[in-house]
Simulated scan of single mutants.
Amino acid sequence: MAHHKPHLPSKECPVCQRPFTWRRKWAKDWDNVRYCSERCRRQRTRAEADRP
């Protein structure tokens, strides 16, 4: 029997513009999580430079 996750909070990554959902490892720091992955976090300067 498959375990279905309940509705989890989500945010949009400012770099790739994709939604990402809450993960257990972010539980204590969810308010400060901004990027969906380490790759997007490294590319953040590119995304910030593209903003008008």
Rank of each mutant, 00 (worst) to 15 (best):
Q43W: 07
R42Y: 15
K11G: 01
A47S: 11
R39E: 09
M1T: 11
R24K: 13
W22S: 01
K11L: 03
S10A: 09
T21L: 03
E38W: 07
R39N: 08
R34F: 07
A27V: 05
W26S: 00
R18L: 04
L8I: 06
R18V: 02
F20Y: 14
F20V: 06
N32I: 01
R44A: 08
H3V: 12
P19F: 13
R34C: 06
Q17M: 14
P14E: 03
Y35F: 10
R24F: 11
A2Q: 11
D31E: 08
T45N: 08
H3T: 12
V15G: 00
T45H: 08
R23H: 09
R44H: 09
P6F: 15
E12L: 04
L8Q: 10
D50R: 06
E48N: 13
E12P: 02
R44S: 08
C13W: 02
N32C: 04
P52A: 05
H4D: 09
V33M: 08
E12D: 04
N32E: 10
N32M: 04
A49E: 09
A2G: 08
R23P: 01
W26T: 00
R18S: 05
K5N: 15
N32W: 03
R51T: 06
R46Y: 14
E38S: 10
Q17Y: 14
T45S: 05
P19V: 09
Q43M: 13
V33Q: 02
C36A: 11
P9A: 13
P6G: 15
S10Y: 15
K28N: 07
P9R: 13
D31R: 06
T21N: 05
E38M: 05
R46F: 14
K25A: 13
L8D: 05
Q43E: 14
W22V: 00
R42P: 05
D31Y: 02
K11T: 02
S37D: 06
K5H: 15
K28A: 09
R34E: 09
C40V: 05
P52Q: 04
N32A: 12
R42I: 12
K5F: 15
P52E: 03
V15K: 00
R42M: 13
R24S: 11
R41M: 08
R34Y: 04
P14D: 09
E38P: 02
P52S: 03
R24E: 10
R41W: 11
A2R: 12
K11I: 03
N32Q: 12
A49V: 05
M1L: 13
P9E: 15
D31A: 10
P9C: 10
K5L: 15
L8Y: 07
P52K: 03
